[in-house]
Design a protein around this nucleic acid. Sequence first.
DNA 1: AACTTGCGAAACCAAAAGGTTTCATATATA
DNA 2: TATATATGAAACCTTTTGGTTTCGCAAGTT
Lengths: 131, 131
Amino acid sequence: MRRDVFQAIADPTRREILNMVAYQPLNINTVSLNFDVSRAAVYKHLKILAECGLVEVKQKGRERFCEARLEGLSQVSDWVEQYRKFWTAKFDSLEIYLDKIQSKPNSKLISKANKNLKKKKNVSRKYSSKR
Amino acid sequence: MRRDVFQAIADPTRREILNMVAYQPLNINTVSLNFDVSRAAVYKHLKILAECGLVEVKQKGRERFCEARLEGLSQVSDWVEQYRKFWTAKFDSLEIYLDKIQSKPNSKLISKANKNLKKKKNVSRKYSSKR
DNA sequence: AACTTGCGAAACCAAAAGGTTTCATATATA
DNA sequence: TATATATGAAACCTTTTGGTTTCGCAAGTT
């Protein structure tokens, strides 16, 4: 069960939950009452958010307050920011590059590709019906 | 079939694909050769990326070159950035607020919650075995 | 003590995801 | 022309996801 921040924020309900507890800690019930889905469903979402560290749960009596711990989002921020140059810059030069490259794609990737090709053929054979 | 950027980048393979085509357009086969999964699987990932606008596909003869169109990531960037203050700021005051609030959670959310509570009871009845 | 609340967990479900094979087709190439 | 390559698409399969009910229990309330 992969449990990373990217997957955690992929679900719109979880993003809403995150937004809700970002401004103040709320107990699980209060969070769930703000959604149409069942408390159990919200509970599971909260569990996922907690598992990847985006919310921290603190017991207070019989209640459990969920507090956002958004530092984990920096991982997403870092990932996105490394590509900002690609959508900020003009793409004309890249277009031209495409025209040049198309008959002979990047050699580095190709050589890596060739290694995988062998692996891939093995895998294929493994699953193939013909021996 | 929900098809948004958040979901598109949730899969690590798709993030790798995106990174691969960010630097130069590549045809589908070349992309797939760099992964252990089948071409068909990679094809599906590319389709998802294309559906949410993160890659653009251009036909060139019998080949189809995939080009990254990363502007869509700005949506993710915007979403994350709105929370940066929460992980940059000190949380002490929030901690104190928690202690004050815990016996009486946010009234705005609560009133919204009450509306949903009614809905929720209806829904429950709908699915309930007892009539 | 009896009742209400807030949770946690289990059992179940349907749909979505992520993969795999296989096959057909169009485009290059030898 | 015969062969190889690059795709698209369909049929299937297994695992994950996102939800729902139902139950039990502990902690507050009346």
